[in-house]
């Protein structure tokens, strides 16, 4: 089984969000870039499955400019066998999915994080599946391979389901797929330098949406403090002022 893990390059989760160019663009100055947390968990599970046997190769792919290469190298250090970067600015989800469709068709299982922590789109995985005419399973929180068969756990409202699905398939994964993300070891980092990172040109694809501008949320009013010994007052405020119950 060949696995492709899609890697989004996102700002560290503690990044202070600012905009430039009349609020038309995200201010990337001083930003630390990381593997999108869900993609990192997806990759971790792929590596675990490979170690258990049953997976031939793990490829990671990203649509982005050369600044994303350190993130791809990190993914190689975690345990992917090779990396592909499609060299273009990711314009919108459809554009990104169209780029990935050129390479993804050759894999049995494609793993995508449920969303990217920057633009929170939750869109590329489903679009890619549709472009390839593959099935897709969303909210996947567990993955196993038994005798070449894929079995998945998927989150549903108030519970979970164990399902089987035919490959090729796009799995859109979330919390639970792996517990802690793998931290690359020194040996992994050394080996990653020699692993192939292929750069492919972008294909023509339309974009269907564009960012007009960004806004920061309005500043919040100060927190109203209530004394520890006056819980009654808190309940009164919640009831009468906030009308919360």
């Amino acid at each position: 089984m060949k696995i492709l893990v899609l890697i989004s390059n996102v700002p560290d989760t503690t990044t202070k969000i600012r905009f430039v160019d009349n609020n038309k663009a995200f201010d990337t100055s001083g930003v630390q870039w990381i593997i999108n947390p869900w993609d990192e968990l997806a990759l971790t599970r792929a590596v675990e499955l490979k170690e258990a046997g049953g997976v031939e190769t793990i490829t990671v792919a990203n649509v982005g400019e050369s600044i994303t290469e350190p993130t791809l190298r990190k993914a190689l250090a975690v345990g992917a066998d090779d990396a592909i970067r499609i060299d273009t600015t990711p314009k919108d989800a459809f554009y990104v999915a169209s780029q990935l469709a050129q390479i993804a068709k050759d894999f049995d299982v494609i793993m995508v994080g449920i969303e990217a922590s920057d633009y929170n789109g939750s869109a590329v995985g489903g679009m890619l599946a549709e472009l390839l005419n593959f099935n897709s399973v969303s909210a996947v929180s567990g993955m196993n391979i038994e005798n070449g068969q894929l079995s998945l756990t998927r989150e549903i409202d108030g519970g979970q389901q164990k399902i089987s699905v035919k490959t090729p398939v796009v799995t859109i994964v979330q919390k639970g797929i792996a517990i802690d993300p793998r931290i690359p070891a020194m040996r992994g980092i050394m080996m990653a330098r020699k692993k192939p990172l292929t750069v492919l040109p972008a294909v023509e694809a339309g974009e269907k949406t564009s960012y007009v501008n960004f806004e920061l949320p309005p500043p919040k009013a100060a927190c109203k403090m209530v004394d520890e010994d006056n819980v009654k007052e808190l309940v009164r405020l919640l009831q009468e002022e906030a009308k919360a119950f």
Partner: peptide, 24 residues
Amino acid sequence: AHNNLGKAIAPRVSVKLKGGMVTG
């Protein structure tokens, strides 16, 4: 809906209908 099922299906439908999508 921007829930598990909505997020799973909407992107596929957007491709089928050649629509433009915004989630959430």
